[in-house]
Computed example of a mutant assay.
Amino acid sequence: MAMPEHDNDPVRAFQAAQDGDPSTRLRAALAAGTNPDPRLITELVRRSATEPEFYVRDMLTWALTRHPASMTVPGLIAELRSERAQARSQALHTLSKIGDRRAWPAITRALLTDADEEVARTAWRTAAALVPEGEEAELAEVLATRLGRGERETRLSLSRALVALGTVVIPLLRAATTDPDPRVRGHAIATQRLLEDPDAGFEFAIEEAKRVVALGGGKEE
């Protein structure tokens, strides 16, 4: 289904395109960013919460970044309270791309510890990007409570967020290397390695951490 070229109302045209295939929806998002119109912001945010295709969602995010932050940020913050996980994760992702620190107070502990791993990962990345100077240590304390959780992708996301906070994480990682849970110890050691040598790569850091934990009498589960 093609976008109705005869309709001069951008909101109606955008809504009509949502009944089309992914390429039609992609073109609609591209058009919304190419010709920014504040009337489209609500629809762009709403569609981000339900759009099934990753590359279309990414274009929706781009379109939102093309509009004034003063108009987009409030609506995105409201989405962080949505019961729909995709709405929360996509709003967080878009806020990270906009980079407006006015969104920082909305990055709550509940989001940083969200039961949905995609939401949590996105919250960690967004928080690390938006944290105001002087509040890194407090954020690091919350993130450190998630060490050892989840699968590889989740652990890598957390490590990257911690590394992005810099040296404030060192005492927390050092303390976590003595945690009774070998998963926490291993993750902390791997994150230390990444902090010391970002070029080492996560897989190398994980393998080295496993060796250290094994030598220390721990057993990876």
Rank of each mutant, 00 (worst) to 15 (best):
A32T: 02
D197F: 08
D37L: 13
L172I: 13
W124I: 10
A87W: 00
R47A: 06
L156V: 15
L30P: 00
D7E: 13
T177N: 03
K210P: 01
A91Y: 00
P182R: 04
L147T: 02
T34R: 12
R211L: 12
R12C: 08
L130N: 01
E141M: 09
L172Y: 04
T34G: 13
E133T: 15
R39F: 04
T42I: 11
I107E: 01
A85P: 01
P52K: 15
E136T: 14
E118H: 05
S82W: 01
G99F: 15
G186K: 00
A137V: 12
L111V: 06
G218S: 12
P68T: 03
V168L: 13
P180C: 10
D100A: 08
A103K: 04
V212Y: 13
I41Q: 00
T126K: 05
A106T: 08
L76I: 02
I98G: 00
Q90V: 11
R155A: 04
E83A: 15
A120Y: 01
L172R: 04
N8C: 12
E53G: 05
V56K: 00
L80F: 04
F54N: 05
R109F: 14
D197Y: 10
L76V: 03
T24P: 01
E208M: 05
R160Y: 13
F14Y: 14
A16F: 07
E118F: 03
N35V: 12
A123P: 02
G150K: 01
L165S: 02
L60F: 06
T94H: 04
A28S: 10
L165D: 02
P36A: 15
Q86R: 09
R109Y: 14
R155S: 09
Q192Y: 12
R102P: 12
P105K: 12
R109I: 15
D37H: 09
E43C: 14
A188V: 10
R81T: 14
A127T: 06
A175V: 10
S96Y: 03
R125Q: 11
V131F: 03
L173C: 07
L40M: 13
L130G: 00
L26H: 07
Q18P: 03
G75T: 07
D9H: 06
E221C: 12
G218T: 10
I77S: 01
G216N: 11
S157L: 11
P180T: 13
A164C: 12
F14C: 09
M3T: 11
A2M: 11
T177M: 06
P182K: 09
E135R: 09
E51F: 02
T178N: 14
P180H: 08
R39S: 09
L26A: 15
E135A: 06
E79V: 01
A16I: 02
Q15M: 12
R155N: 04
R155T: 05
